[in-house]
Each structure stands twice: as C-alpha cells, then as structure tokens.
Nucleic acid binder design. Structure first.
Lengths: 350, 350
DNA sequence: TATTAGCACTCAGGAGTTAAGAGTGCTAAC
DNA sequence: GTTAGCACTCTTAACTCCTGAGTGCTAATA
C-alpha cells in the first residue's frame, strides 16, 4: 500500500471505486470484475476493470478477503468515499418525520430526544445514540415538596426547560409540615433562576446555614436533598435500536453480538466517546476509533448547539459497511432540527 | 411414552432423575450412564443406570438427542422435577439484597420495581420482567401547572404513591396566567383523592362543563389534558437483563437471538402473558406456554398483592434448562418483599 | 431376583478429499 | 490503451472415513 503520497485517481478509477463501495454497502458481498463489467454505468471489460482494481488495491482503497476473491472496500477506501465520493444527498422527507415530532410542541425536550433516537435508528437500521443536552443554560424553576403521608413526601424539581425530576423520601421525625413549608419557600427564594450546574455551590454557601435553623438532624436530610438536587450525571444518554444490528449480516456471529451488547452496557464509556467528539459532523471508520470496542464499527457524530455552545451529540453506530450517504444527510438534518429546537425552548426563558 | 397413568418411581429412579436434571441444568450437556455411575451419590454400575434411564425415558421424563446420545430432561421431566424434586431452598442472603433496596425507604415505588428487576436478572442471569403495580388504590394527590414561558407550561401530576408524571404543553393564546391558576385550583378541588382509574369519568362529567367557562378554545386543550391525565396504559413493564440470555449456551444461534429480541420488543404481548398469570407462584415450562414465541423457554411468575388484591406480577424468563430451585425461592422471596412494600406505601395514605 | 460385565451397534462430529465456481494475474493480441 | 484467453488460486459444499461416547441386549454373577 502506498502511504504518505497524494494519490490522484483517474476519473474511471473514481467511478469504479464508487460503484464497488456502493455495491458492497448494499450487498455486503465481495464483488468481482466480471460482475462489475456487467453493470450499466461501467462500460469496460472485465479485464480493464481488473487492472483498475489492482491499482485501487495498491493504493489501499480495496482489499481481498483471500487471493482469488472479489474486492471489498478497505477502511481507507471508505474514508476516501466519505471524503470525496458522496455528494450532498437530501433525505428531506425522512428528516421531516423527525421535524414533525420536534415541532409538535407538546413534548418535553427529553421526550423529543428519546423519540428522535428511536426514529433515527428505525430509519437507518443502525443503533442511534444521543447525548445531552448539557445544562449550561438550564436553571431551576421551582422546587416543591409534597407530603404523601405522615412520614413520607415527594420532592419535585422543575427546570426552565420543562425537565422534571422527583424523588420520594422519608420526612425526619422532628420536622412538621410548617417547617417543611418554610424550608421549601426559603429554597425557592434562594435557588430559583440558579443554573443547575451551580446548584451545589449555592446550596453549600447560601442555603446550608439557613437550613440549619429549621432542622435538628440537619445533616442527613441535607445531604440527601443535595444528592437529589445535584445530579452527578446530569447529561443523559438516549439509545435507540440496540437490537437493530442483529439485522446486519456482519453480526452473524454470536461472539460479535455478545461483545456488542457488552459494550453497549458501558454507558459511561459511550458517553465519553460522544463528549469528546468535535463540533460539526464527524465520521470515524473502524480503526480510526480510539476505543477498542468499536474498532470494527463506524461512528457518525454530529453536535447540536445553543448560541454556539456545544449542547449535545447525536450519533449512529453501525458496521463500517454503512450507508454513509443516507446516514450523513440524515444526521445533518437532525442536528439542525435539534439546534433549532433548543433555540425555541430557551428563547422565552422566563 | 406412557401417559394418563399415575407413575410411581422407585427411590433409585427418583435419585437418578434428580441427578440427571441437576447435572444438565449445570452443564447443558447430555449425560450418559458411565459418567453418572462415577458420581458419588450414585453407587450403581453403568448398566444398572442404563436400565433405569431406559425406564425413565419410557415414562417420558428423559429424552435422547439421537439414538446413541446421553439423556436430557424432557419438559415432562422438568415438570416432575419442579413439582416433586426440589425441596424448599432458602436463598436468604440473596433475597436480602433486594430487601435492602426496598426498605431503604428513599426510593419511589417505581424505582424499587426497576431496581428489583435489575437485581433479579443479575442474580439469575435470566431476563426478569415485572408488571405493575395496578392503580386500583392509587389516587390523585395534586395537579400543578407551572408556566415556563409566555406560551409554554409544564403540567405535573402526583399520586398518593409518590408517582409523578409530567408533560409540557403550549398554552393556548387566549388564556392568561390567572385563568390557568383558576383552572388548576378548580381541578385540584374536584380531582384530588379521585382514584386514577376513575379520572376519565370524573373529568367528563364534573370537570368538563366547568372548564368551558374558562377557556374559549376549550376542546383542543381539554382533549390534550385528558390524554395526559388519563393514561391509556397505566400498567408499566420493567425489564431487566435483556441481554443476559446471550450468556446461555442454548442461545448459540443467531436466529434464536434474533427471535428472542423481536419477541421482547412486543411489550404488549408480554404484559398480557403476565396479566393472565394466576395468583401465587407459577412455573410454565416450554410448550406449556400458550404464546408461541416462548414455547422453548420457561417462565416463572409470582404475583404481589395489596389487601389480597392482585397488584402486579414478577416474572423470570429463561431456557427450559433453568435453575428452578434457586429461581423459585428467589421469586417467592421477592414477591413477599414487594407485597410488604406495597403495604408500607399505602399504609398511611393521606 | 437384582445387578453387573461384555459386546455389538448407532450416531454425531471432526478430519481429509474432491469438485465446482468465482475470481484473479498475466500475456498476447487487437 | 483495451480486451480476450488461460492457467492458477482459493472458498465452499458435498462426500467419505474414522473415532469416541453412548446405547440396548444377553449372559454371567451375587
């Protein structure tokens, strides 16, 4: 394989490479010169194509599975294909499915994300992963504590984005309902409008000493409440179509399936991969991935934004033999939609 | 195979049957007379055991995979094993793992159920499914509508069990915030304490005409609100360890894996199976299952209760070669715990 | 009479062989 | 520069052979 050299492909080589990759993406089977020469858009003899294929292999764009097999795209081949051979394709009507969901307006952002992940995986038959959104701009709207019985209550937290979290807890013996009410009022006074990521700070400085006045066994309850308010892992991962990959012929092997599912269970690791993705759309093919577990898969990521700040990441995970053209346009569309949706949500921030 | 006859097994046959099934549950491999005769608890020659095995096969408790293979338990064999050969086993320390979670008191019932499902599947390496709880005794505690911006708001519904649901929606143009407030007050007045399953009725009769007074484009908003309050599918399914079955050697075949995951996606169907399960613990082995998709699996179900009313079902789905002894005691323990937990939650119903 | 040893028989599964088919690389002709 | 032709390679599936595990039956044994 020639490396470190700028490779100029002839027009014919470009066409042949494209046809081979398109065919392989479609069929998942190696293709030979004879079969290629029969295709309408390739009016060359098998021998000519064989020569070109030999060159393309020398350049590193194609591979053989064994000495006398047909050719298969290499990772470098996919890279070239993604970078140079796929023009802009508009899956406008597919994007509009997602657009409709988002613009319905009746859904909370979280639901939108979940539904987008599911639609995305259904449209592509790959596994979709959406990270986010980050909470930079999210502020606390209201805290409410609602007694359920003499000794239990549910705490409800609402953000300006319509995100709701809640947790049940036991009311400490010494606290009566009027104490509780005062406490909540006090917290709302101090915490409303505070960005979620700053909650911990404000809680520790401003609120802690006030709380002490109301509660005798302050420590335990405060710690508990803090754990509720200050979520360690505020950025959520939405996964759609985990079992879609079972439809892909490359997962015809039980071990591969096993290792895929094992990998998908490590949500932290996946979140990390997505967090580190750059702005804009990014395609990482096979061994280009740094994480061992997905070195035989391709990952497409795109970010969505708010006022230029990176808010989250949309991703699709599939075999290296991926329908890049379709997938890229779809993800581009979705990230635009989600950026718009973010803007809509935060626009009239009360 | 002899059927319709009461079969009396000799003591030795019972022991042999038990050892064979125990061994197969452990190893998943057919076992032959020679290997059996070497076991400590079977001081008989291979020939003797062969004769007994032939009888057990004639009775229908054992099968051969081919003419000269070792024996494997038949479904009838498992049935006999479950009904007569497994004494009470107490996995007390395993049950206590779940007990600790439940009794922590800090979790909402829903979380408890989710965690139980996960622990159950982890302890067993099978897939756990928990249905419920039913809402017979659940009543509405509070409705709240919190404006997020000029034209969006989030509605929050809390039940007496600490269950919280919420949904964002667009505020109709013509409604101002004081209208909204009145409306919510009115709904709380009328709906607090109403059982969730009767919400629809009360909404249609008592609340509908009152609402009309406040809202001009009443219909759309009312319908939307109703859809939120009256959840079509109030009984939820919690699934744990979906990919656990990949560890089972019987799922060494991609097609089986595929059909399993396809089946698991049909949550309605699964919910139906569990809904129709009887009170108490129930073991359904292979073809005893009426649903086609699980005819080569075993399902163990147990119900949990409140004041004698069936509230929900705990289930484990695994290969017919299941660790029945362990699993049954575990599920028994869990259903007791969950019944207790239900009682705790509803005890001080405010 | 119940148990056991012995032996012929069966079958699954792995190793080895063969044949067909798809595809290649090279050479020579166009 | 392109193409036809041909020898060669390698996979895959089908077939055969062989071994080992296990059985059923019969006759000997306790």
């Amino acid at each position: 394989m020639l490396t470190g050299v700028i490779i100029m492909l002839t027009k014919r080589q470009l066409i042949i490479l494209q046809v081979i990759i398109d065919d392989f993406i479609d069929s998942a089977r190696p293709i030979g010169s004879r079969a290629l020469s029969k295709k309408d858009n390739l009016p060359y003899s098998a021998a000519t194509i064989r020569n070109e294929m030999a060159d393309l292999e020398e350049f590193g764009f194609l591979e053989k599975t064994h000495t006398s097999s047909g050719r298969v795209p290499s990772e470098k081949g996919y890279r070239y294909y993604v970078d140079h051979l796929i023009g802009p394709s508009t899956n406008q009507n597919q994007v509009s499915i997602i657009k409709d969901i988002i613009q319905d307006g009746f859904f909370e952002f979280e639901q939108i994300v979940q539904m987008s992940a599911e639609v995305l995986s259904k449209l592509t038959s790959y596994t979709s992963i959406i990270l986010g959104p980050e909470m930079f701009e999210t502020t606390l709207k209201q805290i409410q504590i609602l007694p359920l019985s003499d000794h239990t209550a549910v705490a409800i937290l609402v953000t300006n984005t319509g995100h709701v979290e809640h947790r049940s807890f036991a009311i400490p013996e010494k606290i009566n309902s009027s104490d509780l009410e005062k406490m909540v009022n006090m917290m709302n006074e101090r915490l409303t409008g505070v960005p979620i990521i700053k909650l911990q700070e404000v809680l520790n400085t401003e609120v802690a000493h006030l709380m002490k006045m109301y509660m005798d066994d302050f420590d335990k309850s405060f710690e508990y409440l803090k754990a509720f308010l200050v979520n360690d892992n505020p950025v959520k991962l939405y996964i759609g179509g985990k079992s879609n990959i079972l439809m892909q012929p490359e997962f015809n092997d039980v071990d591969k399936i096993r290792s895929f599912f094992t990998m998908m269970e490590k949500e932290d690791e996946i979140a990390n991969i997505l967090k580190n993705s750059k702005n804009g759309i990014e395609v990482t093919i096979g061994n280009e991935n740094e994480v061992e577990a997905i070195k035989d898969l391709s990952l497409i990521t795109a970010s969505y934004h708010l006022n230029g700040d990176h808010m989250g990441t949309i991703a699709l995970l599939g075999p290296t033999r991926m329908e890049y053209r379709k997938v890229i346009s779809l993800i581009k569309g979705l990230s635009t939609e989600m950026t718009d949706a973010m803007y809509m949500w935060y626009r009239n921030d009360g």
